[in-house]
Design a protein around this nucleic acid. Sequence first.
DNA 1: TATTGTTATACTCTATAACTATA
DNA 2: TATAGTTATAGAGTATAACAATA
Lengths: 142, 142
Amino acid sequence: MPRKPLELAVIDLMQAVGLLVRRVRAAANAQGLSMTEATVLARLDKAGPATTAELARAEAMKPQSMGATVGSLEELGLVERRPHATDGRQLNIVLTAKGAALRSSAQLAKRTWLAQAIAQLDDAERETLFEAGEIIMRLVEK
Amino acid sequence: MPRKPLELAVIDLMQAVGLLVRRVRAAANAQGLSMTEATVLARLDKAGPATTAELARAEAMKPQSMGATVGSLEELGLVERRPHATDGRQLNIVLTAKGAALRSSAQLAKRTWLAQAIAQLDDAERETLFEAGEIIMRLVEK
DNA sequence: TATTGTTATACTCTATAACTATA
DNA sequence: TATAGTTATAGAGTATAACAATA
């Protein structure tokens, strides 16, 4: 049972998400990685090389937009493009040694404000956030 | 106790937030209000007229940026600028009749994808999302 | 001098459209 | 013809800088 009317709670959540995104973006401009950049980097580490098109599908973005993200990761020296073994159209995006070095949470935390902030929460708060993330994942698929 | 390593859970949350924001933005471009627009509108309804500077402080944005948001709400006919009674520098942003008509959750839900989506969740899921929103609010204040 | 607001400019993120190369 | 990728252009959202008016 919500503590306040539904519409007000929804607005508060929107405000929180807006503040969060602006905060992460400000931190990324100053020193680190944007949310999309961090997500793509972690995905490459977890699941191995992928094409721009595959990454775009995973993030529900257009391939052209993902191309820009991959381009900025490439400028940072974190990924590189490699020709596909058999399909001449494809370019595999792979982590460089520098990109792979960011795989540990300690390294990633330095690079993203959100990871840093979440590390300071207690277990129950973290768990609530992660559950919310799972709910959002189901929500956006509809 | 998290079900997966902390760094992976953080990345999953980042991905969820990214997908959510892109989804809300796409829906807003097609028909409705952006997250910031909806938040500002609700705030004006809840707390009454405010200046651009006050709204900017509440959303942790620059006054110039909030000016753009207010401008688009004005173009939609949802708010208007009124001279302040005593301070000639200030312009109060007030809801128009059309803007005030959006105050009910039913009206707002039609205007924002997120409100519409959340209305379809069960109570426990909604509560988790709203708790996560409160945690995020505390997080961004640090 | 500080505050409110505006205008001009630019950057990030993402989209649409048009194109080339390969399958 | 379908798919992978690139380039060009545009839009939303936000920032910085410079300015005008008022306090």
